[in-house]
Design a protein around this nucleic acid. Sequence first.
DNA 1: GCCAACGTTGGC
DNA 2: GCCAACGTTGGC
Length: 152
Amino acid sequence: MQYWLLKSEGDCYSIDDLKRDKQTAWTGVRNYQARNFMRDSIKKGDLAIFYHSSSKPTGVYGVAKIVSTAHADETQFDCKDAHYDPTSKKTDPRWMCVDIAFVKKFTEPVSLEEIKHDPHLEGMMVRAQGSRLSVQPVSEKHFNYIVEEMTK
DNA sequence: GCCAACGTTGGC
DNA sequence: GCCAACGTTGGC
């Protein structure tokens, strides 16, 4: 069992959208490092904190669960999609995605500022300057601290 | 909307 | 395989 941070632009796909949809394919990831995490490390049943970037406030808004293993991201083949990748082949898809399900939305988001200032969260990836990775591993300790202690 | 920090591309 | 140019991300 591993823990992750999934990043989304708040006004692009938010925790409320996930709550409404109940489940969604986490498509549009076009970064090799993030893809490799999804392809190689994320397992069905893993939990993730759902992070909104470019939001007010920027931070963690809830929890999602991974409900599939990695499979081809269909948006890479759709020329009308913003994430279309004309160099990717159906027979050898370049980009992967996983399916995620809504678990819960926090009553109050845990802001990036709080995360940065809490000594319990020392070393968390999202605290690093210029942390642009949209799929990040999170330690069990950090995950539980955020979900259990910071949302009371 | 700015801009610094990143990741990717492509010429050599 | 280097590295400058370019495009993108994301906090502010």
